[in-house]
Amino acid sequence: MALSVITKTANPDDVCIDIAEALRYMGYKHAQPDQQTFALLQDCLSELKNAVSYTACLCEISISVRDDEIDFGFLQIKSRDLSKNLSGCDRAVLFAATIGAGADRLIAKYGKIQPSRALILDALGSAAIEGWCNLLNEQVRAIAQKNNRFLRPRFSAGYGDFPIAIQPQLLTALDARRKAGIYLTDSCMMLPTKSVSAVIGVSDRPKACKTGCEICSQTECAYKA
């Protein structure tokens, strides 16, 4: 049987766009932007909110984890980092989420005529997709909690040694193009560009896990938190 995938959407006001996170993407470590930049950022934020269309598709499946190998049913892979993340999980929620093509149009538009605006919109767009994932994550957590189940931090292809090359299988299994309008280029980039796919492990017991930048072995990255 094909996976049972559902589509979810959210209103622009329901998704929290973390400005501090957006500033970090723009290279502000702990500094605050000056007045002009802040005004421009506010302006970009309202323009972005009018352009986003939060959509996601997700499904829950049974998985099995043995040593470094994870069996998703439709896909078997080897990944030390992911199997660490999923250890103790018998199920997982897979999802792909996007803020839509409108944001890409805005970023492309200003990339041509006003790059400062494109830069800020790009950073806000990244913060927006994070916010949308957080909201989805929270919804999944609420359901899990009712059943006394616990979630692992979401894990995306490209983190650690979880290979980005599995994206075609993952997005096909999620029917992400039809269900959420998410495409994949030949080089495994998602389109619209502000999109995320991820695996969330579901387990009977809680467990602390490394998340985000902690699991990344890259040391020269400018964005490392």
């Binding site: 723009m26 500094a31 000056d34 930049t37 950022l41 006003q114 400062s116 830069l119």
Partner: peptide
């Protein structure tokens, strides 16, 4: 100076 400012000045 941060990147957005650098660009705004450039513009």
């Amino acid at each position: 100076v941060f990147l957005p400012q650098l660009l705004m000045s450039a513009e």
